[in-house]
Amino acid sequence: MSDDLAARIDRLESLDAIRQLPAKYALALDMRDMDAMVGLFPADVRVGKETSGREALRRYLDETMRVQFNGTSHHIGGHIIEFDDPDHARGVVYSKNEHETGPEWVIMQMMYVDDYERIEGRWYFRRRLPLYWYATDLNKPPIGDRKMRWPGREPYEGGFHELFPSWREFWARSGAPEGPVPEPAPLDQFINRMRGTAEAPRVRVR
């Protein structure tokens, strides 16, 4: 087998393995299997500023799911994956979620901006940045600003558009851009082209 063919097969197998990570994440989270959940992250996963490791992540997730939610369902949408090298990739994946939280049924639209890493032949989430468009009671459409509307909390912005300058640029002009259309982004650079120099926003998880 040629090196080129082997590399192409490896890329296809990696794409499939990475695509399964968000689906496994959703299933493990919704079924409250915290061991399965933290196994999707490397052993040295960062948990906040001061702690790391799967045990710390398991404690954090167990407390969050136990205190805030009676039940959840996460529905995975479109998934873009791009590679930096054979063992490192990044992606954007949409997620539409439902939460039973006390007397209210909260629906949410969000995306995850992910970093992936292959360690000893297995792909993991290295980092997940959640960006939210809205969260609201099923019977209360989130019209207007500050669409993150959790029961018992002040509404806030979820950072859904902050990583991609095109959203602000679109609304800052009155019509279509001037000048020629740029060439399509190079392979594995679609996300980077859209993101430009934008830094990751700081977003409240809940």
Rank of each mutant, 00 (worst) to 15 (best):
L163K: 00
R66I: 15
R206A: 10
T101S: 05
V38N: 06
A176G: 09
H74V: 03
G196V: 05
A6Q: 13
T136K: 00
P42R: 01
A36P: 13
S166K: 03
A36L: 05
D33R: 02
D115P: 08
P155G: 03
N70A: 10
R118E: 12
R66Q: 15
E117Y: 04
Y112K: 01
H74Q: 07
I107P: 00
M194K: 03
W150N: 02
D115W: 04
R59M: 13
Q20A: 08
L61T: 15
N70W: 12
A17L: 05
L163C: 01
A200F: 09
R118G: 08
N192Y: 12
R32G: 05
H79M: 08
H161K: 03
R54M: 13
A172G: 07
V113Y: 02
G39W: 11
R173Y: 15
R118C: 11
N97V: 01
Y124H: 06
R58N: 10
D10W: 14
V113A: 05
L138W: 10
L138A: 12
G179H: 05
L131K: 02
V113K: 00
E104T: 12
V205Y: 07
W123T: 07
I191L: 07
R46L: 15
Q109F: 10
M194A: 09
G78Y: 11
S73V: 12
V113H: 01
I9S: 06
H161T: 02
E55N: 05
Y116L: 04
A200M: 08
Y94H: 00
H161F: 11
L61R: 11
F83A: 09
G48D: 14
H79K: 03
R90M: 14
V106H: 04
L187F: 10
L57Q: 09
E100Y: 12
T64A: 12
E63Q: 10
R59G: 13
Y156H: 07
S95W: 11
I143V: 12
R126C: 10
A198F: 04
G102D: 07
A28C: 06
A36D: 13
R127M: 07
D188R: 01
P177A: 02
D85G: 04
P130A: 03
H79V: 07
E13M: 09
G121W: 06
E100S: 09
E169G: 02
D188I: 05
R58V: 12
G159I: 05
S14N: 06
E117A: 05
V205K: 03
G39E: 15
P177T: 02
E169N: 01
N192G: 11
S174Q: 14
R195G: 09
P184N: 00
D145S: 04
I18N: 03
G48N: 06
P180I: 11
L138R: 13
E120S: 06
L131R: 00
P103W: 05
G179R: 01
V93S: 00
R126F: 08
I107F: 00
E178M: 07
P22M: 03
A176I: 10
Y94P: 01
W133S: 02
E117L: 04
D30T: 02
S14D: 08
R193K: 10
